[in-house]
Computed example of a mutant assay.
Amino acid sequence: MTDSPAGDPTRAPEGSSDAPGGSGGAGSAGEAEIPRPASPLPAAGEPPPAGGPPNGGPASGGPASGGPTHEQVGWRPETGPPAGHAGWTPPPAGAPSLPHCYRHPERETYVTCQRCGRPICPDCMRPAAVGFHCPEESGAGGGGRPERRREPRTDFGGRPGAGRRGLVTQVLISLCLVAFVLQGLPGLARDSGSLNQFSADFRLYGVSLAWDDQYYRLLTAAFLHVNYLHVLVNLYALFVLGYQLEAILGRLRLVALFVACAVGGNTLSYLVNGVSVNSVGASTAIFGFFGAYYVIARRLRADTTQILILIGINFALTFTLSFIDRWGHVGGLAAGVLVGLLYAYVPPRRTVVQAAGVLALVGLLFAAAVIKSADLTTAFA
């Protein structure tokens, strides 16, 4: 037989006027009479009667004996009756106090939440990076702070599969194409070398740097190109390298790399050639991508044979063809190696350190250009 939901062993047996279901034997209409135990349960702390269930628990008969189900009385066989139930007996005086789950007081447990320290049973355990959390601390119980789930990232800070792939690379390519179209407006004849106003305002031109302090040209010149072959070759290289580096480094790091390499290449060209410098092209930044790619591949212990061959071929062309700004390529490669070292050996979680390093490099390059301008104006004064 089973115990009554509020089973008081001192109450009258079934059929009396105090039994639930109203007065009399069968109870009132719409209510079923719950059978009472044949013998009273032992008081708290007393041993159970011989042959009875331990701790006043249920007999083995269960629902088949005609009593209510476990769901009706509010507990399950594997957990035992809850505290305060008629079938629950507190531990005897002097017994060691065992921790119980804060959500299921009838369950003993030795596991605690790693955040709040409350004891939790297996049903309440939520796996965490270290140990387990309770439902409230993991965000599953409502009212607690939700567990922060970190986005997966590469070893260098990129987000695999986050958003649109190669978005920054596509934007850089689009800017180069838009600039090339603007260069083709009336006034530009690419074969004859004449310039329209747009090209004249944003190319790398030493006279404008030295006398007009137009240092924005150190960056804007990387978006201009001379002819169709020039823009197609550069944009193809930017597409191939940009997509791979953006997947590894992330968007903001790729933007910073492009800016640092473009400024680095154009600044070295200005420092070496002075007022005679007159060049355009994204190749300064692309050579920087070569350098950064090589450093990152070495950091990953990958095979760098192909990238070294590619760098060698491009340098052979650089120093063979007379119309190529070789110092711009050298400067871009050097800047790419420096930024690549910063990205490869400074942990990506230290974003502030990486950003400060890139800003410091760009600031030094602009400062060098300013000093060069001061020297040129003094020499020609």
Rank of each mutant, 00 (worst) to 15 (best):
Gly265Leu: 10
Leu257Gly: 01
Tyr216His: 08
Phe258Tyr: 11
Ile311Phe: 07
Leu300Gly: 03
Ile286Gln: 05
Gln306Ala: 10
Gly312Val: 07
Phe289Thr: 00
Arg301Ser: 14
Tyr243Cys: 06
Gln244Val: 14
Leu252Gln: 09
Ala237Arg: 00
Ala282Asn: 06
Val255Arg: 00
Ala221Glu: 06
Arg298Ala: 09
Tyr215His: 12
Arg217Asn: 13
Glu246Val: 09
Ala282Gln: 01
Ala222Gln: 14
Leu219Glu: 01
Gly274Arg: 06
Ile307Thr: 08
Gln306Gly: 12
Val277Asp: 06
Ile286Cys: 01
Ser283Pro: 01
Ala247Lys: 03
Ser269Met: 09
Glu246Phe: 07
Leu268Trp: 01
Val280Phe: 03
Leu219Lys: 02
Asn314Met: 12
Ala262Glu: 05
Tyr294Lys: 04
Gly274Tyr: 06
Phe290Trp: 03
Gly264Gln: 01
Ala285Gly: 04
Ala221Asp: 04
Ala222Cys: 15
Ala302Met: 06
Ile313Val: 15
Arg251Met: 08
Ala285Phe: 01
Leu218Glu: 12
Ala282Gly: 14
Phe239Thr: 12
Gly291His: 00
Asp213Trp: 14
Val263Phe: 00
Leu224Trp: 06
Gly242Lys: 03
Val259Gly: 00
Gln306His: 05
Asn234Ile: 05
Arg299Val: 01
Ala302Tyr: 08
Ile311Pro: 06
Gly291Ala: 01
Asn266Gly: 03
Thr304Phe: 02
Cys261Val: 02
Ser279Asp: 15
Phe258Gln: 12
Val259Ile: 15
Ile286Thr: 03
Ile313Met: 15
Trp211Thr: 09
Leu252Trp: 15
Leu249Ile: 06
Ala221Met: 02
Ala237Cys: 12
Thr220Leu: 08
Val240Arg: 13
Tyr270Leu: 14
Thr220Gln: 06
Ser276Arg: 07
Val277Phe: 05
Phe287Pro: 00
Asn278Trp: 08
